[in-house]
Simulated scan of single mutants.
Amino acid sequence: MTWTYRYKQPVTGLMKQTRIGTYPGMRPSEAAEAVERLRILRADGVDPKAFQRQQRKPAAAVPADAEVFTVRKLVQDYITNHIEQERQEAGAIAARRALERLLDEEPAFADAPAAAVTRSTCFDLLDARKATPTAAQKLRSMLGAAWSRALDVGRLDQDVPNWWPTLMKGKLKSKGKIVGGEHQGQKRRVLRDDEVGELLAWLPNMHELGRDATQIYLWTCARGVEIPAMHPEHITEEKDGW
Rank of each mutant, 00 (worst) to 15 (best):
R189V: 00
V75E: 01
L126F: 05
L167N: 01
E84F: 07
A94D: 15
E233R: 15
G13C: 05
L125R: 00
V11H: 01
P24K: 04
Q88K: 15
V117Y: 00
R72D: 10
M26G: 05
Q184S: 12
P107A: 09
W242I: 12
S141Q: 12
D104G: 00
L99M: 08
V68Q: 09
L38R: 02
Q184A: 01
G91H: 05
I79D: 04
V62D: 10
Y5F: 08
D44S: 13
N162T: 00
V153A: 09
T236W: 06
A112H: 13
K73A: 12
E226G: 06
S141W: 04
K49C: 02
R101L: 13
R39T: 04
R87C: 13
R56C: 03
A222F: 09
E33H: 09
V153Y: 12
R42W: 05
G154S: 07
F109Q: 06
L126M: 15
K177E: 13
A32T: 11
L143V: 10
D194K: 03
E238F: 09
K171W: 04
S174V: 08
L203S: 04
V117G: 04
A112M: 11
M142I: 03
R6C: 10
E233G: 12
A229P: 05
T134L: 11
K171C: 06
H234S: 13
P10I: 00
R188Y: 12
A43Y: 07
V190C: 07
D44Y: 08
K175Q: 13
P48H: 02
L99H: 09
L14N: 14
L102V: 11
A110D: 10
W163Q: 03
A61P: 03
E106V: 08
F69D: 08
T134W: 08
K16E: 11
A110E: 07
A60V: 11
R211Q: 13
A201C: 00
E89S: 11
N81W: 10
A114Q: 03
D194S: 12
V179S: 05
D127L: 08
E233N: 15
S29M: 11
T132P: 08
M168D: 03
I40Y: 12
V71S: 03
G241W: 05
F51A: 02
E30D: 14
K130P: 04
